[in-house]
Each structure stands twice: as C-alpha cells, then as structure tokens.
Design a protein around this nucleic acid. Sequence first.
DNA 1: GTTATTTGCTTTAGGCCTAAAGCAAATAAG
DNA 2: CTTATTTGCTTTAGGCCTAAAGCAAATAAC
Lengths: 170, 170
Amino acid sequence: MDIEAARAMSDADYETAIAMPRTDPAADASTLDLKIWVRLLGCAKLIEKTLRRNFEVHFATTLPRFDILATLARNVDGLRMGELSRALLVSNGNVTSIVRQLQEQGLVHSAKAPDDARSAVVRLTPAGEEVFSELAQAHRHWVREAMKDFPEDQQRQLLELLVQLRSSLS
Amino acid sequence: MDIEAARAMSDADYETAIAMPRTDPAADASTLDLKIWVRLLGCAKLIEKTLRRNFEVHFATTLPRFDILATLARNVDGLRMGELSRALLVSNGNVTSIVRQLQEQGLVHSAKAPDDARSAVVRLTPAGEEVFSELAQAHRHWVREAMKDFPEDQQRQLLELLVQLRSSLS
DNA sequence: GTTATTTGCTTTAGGCCTAAAGCAAATAAG
DNA sequence: CTTATTTGCTTTAGGCCTAAAGCAAATAAC
C-alpha cells in the first residue's frame, strides 16, 4: 500500500476490519451498530482534536479543565467532587487532580460541606467566572466553525437522534 | 443542590453552561452545534467506557491496542507507523509505544521497509490474527449490546447523518 | 558532490484517565 | 454505646495521548 492509499484509509476500513468476517449474508444490518460506533468515535475525535489544540494555543489550558469550569458555571451553588465526576462521566480521582490545578490557578474555591465533613463544595471564584466566560465564547466559536459546513436541518435531525441514542444507552 | 439533583444533571446542563449567555433571542439555533457536540461526546464516552471495561476484564487488553490490531487486520500487506497513526487519528509517538507493546506480546511483527530505511512495515503475526479474531467477535457483541435498544431505522438515519457530518468536518 | 531541507519515526515531559487501595466520616447493626 | 459497613474522596500505579525536541534517511538545491 502506498502513502496515498493510506491517507485515504479511514473509518470505513477500520470498521470493515472489526466487522470481519463479512460472510454473513445480512452483513449490512449486522454491522450497522458497529458502523455507527466507528463514525461516532471518529467525529468526536476530530472535533476534540481541534478544540484541544485551540485551548492549548490560545489559552494555555485544556478541554477537561474547561469542562469542569462549565459544569460549575451551570451550578452556581457549587458541586461536590462526586457530583462533578458523575456529571462529567469521569472517575473520582480524575476530578481530584484537575480541581486541584484549577484551585492553584485561583479559578475555583472549595469550602467544607456543611452537612458532611468528608466532602467539600467546589465553586467558581469571580476570577473563574471571568475566565470561563472568555473560554466559553471561544469554545462556542470553534465548535461553530467546525460544523459550519453541516447544514442546519441535518443538524436538527442529528441532535434528535443523538438524544435518543443517549437515552437508549443508559 | 442535593445528590438526587446532581445525579439527574447531565449533558443538557453542561451544554447550557457552555452556551451562556442565553440572551440571544435565536438561542436555539445558535447553540444547535454546541448541543450536537455535547451529545456526541457524551454518547462516545459512554460507549467507550463500557468497551474499555470489557476489554480490561475479559481480555486484559485495551481499546487502543484493539484499534491497532483491527487496522492491521484490514491491511494484510502491513502498514508503516505513519500510516497507522493517520488511520487512527493519533500522534506518531503514541503509535510507537502501543506497537512496541503488541510486538512484545508477539501479536505484531515489523520488518524494514524495502524502499525506505527510516520506516518499518508492521503486520499482524499469525498469533495476532487469532487474538484479533477473538477480540473482534467480543467487541461486535458488546457494541450490539450497547445499542440494542436503539431502533434499527433510527440507526440507519444516524449513520447517514454521521457520515455526512464526518465529511463536512474535513 | 556537497549542503540544506524535508520526512519518518522515536524520545521526553507532562496532562488526562482508570482501577484499586487506603483513609476518615457517616451510617447501620447489635 | 460499640462495632461493622458504607460512602466520599485521595493516592498510587500504570496506560493513553500530545507537542516538541532529536535523529537519521531521503530528497532538494546548488
């Protein structure tokens, strides 16, 4: 295989590989879910890649940190670590370290939970709100830019289907 | 916010946060792409989570390793490192280390490229083909299981839209 | 033919992520 | 009240991932 052929290789080939063997006469139907999974992951990876790069270049920060700021921005009364990790679909230990970094940067602040000495309630600081506001604006712009060639009515259909997929996954 | 409320918090809230401020009268249209991105990422993370867990528990391996085996299975003539990294949308250095592990496990084998002394062509070994075949079967089953409650006709629509999204991202 | 640039890959430093172990507070059982 | 279990979180070990630096082969410029 030459370089050009490799460049052209993409999700479709990967998906063929993981769906092998193709001897099933109803192969199309039988690999539908696999195809969806491969495409889903490919699209997510592509978008995530540009966002990560942009966060790094323009703000010297990362997508996971932004995710935490965004979740806290939505919950002005603060959240506990466990609430954060459930909201972001990541592990407890993961949230621990990222929140610590944000705390060192003065963007979040954590106070003892009044009802449970094991927990702390994490909130955005005023500085955190300000930084988040800038980040969110840029983030909105980058996502828009990434999807600008995808027609709006198809966007609506896609969103509806993704919402249904999400609920059927749980 | 109590624990129950936090449990119920999901993509929708996160998406509201990153789309703030909501003062735009055409807010729905203006945040459509953002909503898609959030849902896309959420669905991908959920599925990836179960796959990773399954690969770990049942085969003591990982999704990235499977991805490389699958790509090589599709390309029986072998691929160079750069071709692999482009196919998988990951960096060169990343592929280097994962291929080394697979090599240590005897699942892949790399030979000097005949035309370029800087490159090596990586192929599945017979053992690698066998292992991949087992992994692929399990993987197929897990993905099917994850999407079993998502109706087939909606799967077809979703796949079509994802294909279009993917092509409009490039 | 010699030098400069480009290309393919590896290495390194550092961030993200998980599972599992560990710790302390909260709660349940007796 | 005392002990046992559960719960919330942190720590640790280890895998994935990137960007950037580094190296050697290939190619271009001269």
